[in-house]
Computed example of a mutant assay.
Amino acid sequence: MKQSQRAQYLAQGAMIGAIYMVLTLLAALANLAYGPVQFRFSEALTILPIFTPAAVPGLAVGCLLSNIWSGYGAADMVFGTSATLLAAICTRMVRNIRINKIPILAPLPPVLFNAVIIGIEIAVFSAEGFSWIGFWGAALSVGLGELVICYGLGLPLAAALQKLGKKRKIF
């Protein structure tokens, strides 16, 4: 990788991470970023690995920094970041699976990884301790929030970026 390409990769990743963090903290102001009910606007950005590999570390770092303010502390920094990193890698892997040029599977990895991993985290760290009912409740709640954001905001964002990229020959 040439030095200019490396610089571009780092700049893209840093920018994505910073935007992810800012959007997460804005959602936190509305009490929507942490806990069993999550509608992180930043999760719409999880679609970005279809456009650039720099989004994979960018999203992970943005999530790590965002989770500093989580009520789950270091656990959320580890588990939340892991969920985001795994989801970003898988999103990158399915980027070319399209229906009518729409990357229909790309928003699915964040939904699944966050539902399972964050569902486990919330159930394990609940005041009552782990229970399967607690896990399924948290997993469904987090997964539904992810589904709404990733498909409702992320997929339209991908379509807009694709259209912009074609006009400006970015992608």
Rank of each mutant, 00 (worst) to 15 (best):
Leu86Phe: 01
Ala88Gly: 04
Gly80Lys: 08
Gly145Arg: 00
Val94Gln: 03
Ser131Glu: 03
Ser82Leu: 14
Leu86Lys: 01
Asn100Lys: 04
Pro103Ser: 05
Ala75His: 13
Ala139Arg: 00
Arg98Ala: 06
Val142Ala: 11
Leu85Met: 12
Val111Lys: 08
Ala83Met: 07
Asp76Thr: 03
Ile149Pro: 02
Leu140Thr: 12
Asn96Tyr: 05
Met93Val: 14
Glu121Met: 13
Gly137His: 06
Phe79Glu: 01
Val78Cys: 13
Ile102Asp: 11
Val78Gln: 04
Ala123Val: 15
Ile120Val: 14
Pro110Gln: 07
Val124Gly: 01
Asn100His: 06
Ala75Trp: 12
Leu105Tyr: 04
Phe113Ser: 14
Met93Cys: 12
Tyr151Arg: 08
Ile89Phe: 13
Trp136Gly: 14
Ala139Phe: 13
Leu108Ala: 05
Ile102Ala: 13
Gly71Trp: 15
Ala83Tyr: 06
Asp76Phe: 08
Ile133Cys: 00
Gly152Gln: 06
Glu121Gln: 15
Met93Thr: 11
Ile104His: 12
Arg98Met: 13
Ile122His: 02
Ala123Pro: 13
Phe113Gln: 09
Leu108Ile: 07
Arg92Gln: 11
Ile149Asp: 12
Gly129Arg: 00
Phe130Cys: 02
Ala83Pro: 02
Leu105Trp: 01
Leu153Asp: 02
Leu105His: 04
Ser82Tyr: 02
Val111Asn: 12
Leu153Tyr: 03
Val116Ala: 14
Glu146Asn: 14
Ile118Tyr: 02
Ser82Asn: 08
Asn100Thr: 07
Gly80Ala: 05
Ile118Phe: 00
Ile104Gln: 06
Gly80Phe: 10
Phe135Lys: 00
Cys90Phe: 01
Ile99Lys: 04
Asn114Ile: 07
Trp136Ile: 15
Val116Gln: 13
Leu140Asp: 00
Ile149Leu: 11
Met77Val: 06
Arg92Asp: 03
Glu121Tyr: 05
Ser126Asn: 12
Ala139His: 12
Ser126Leu: 01
Pro103Thr: 04
Leu86Cys: 06
Asn100Trp: 14
Leu147Arg: 10
Thr91Arg: 03
Ala88Ser: 13
Leu153Ser: 01
Gly137Asp: 02
Leu147Cys: 12
Ile102Met: 10
Ile89Trp: 02
Glu146Pro: 09
Met77Arg: 10
Pro107Lys: 07
Glu121Ser: 04
Gly143Phe: 11
Phe79Asn: 09
Ile120Gln: 15
Ser126Arg: 01
Ile117Pro: 08
Asn114Lys: 08
Met77Gly: 11
Ile97Trp: 03
Leu153Pro: 03
Ile122Gln: 05
Cys90Arg: 02
Ser141Asn: 06
Ile99Trp: 07
Leu108Gln: 00
Leu140Ile: 15
Leu147Ser: 07
Thr84Phe: 02
Ile122Cys: 03
Gly134His: 13
Ser141Pro: 04
Ala138Asn: 09
Gly143His: 07
Trp132Gln: 00
Ser131Met: 01
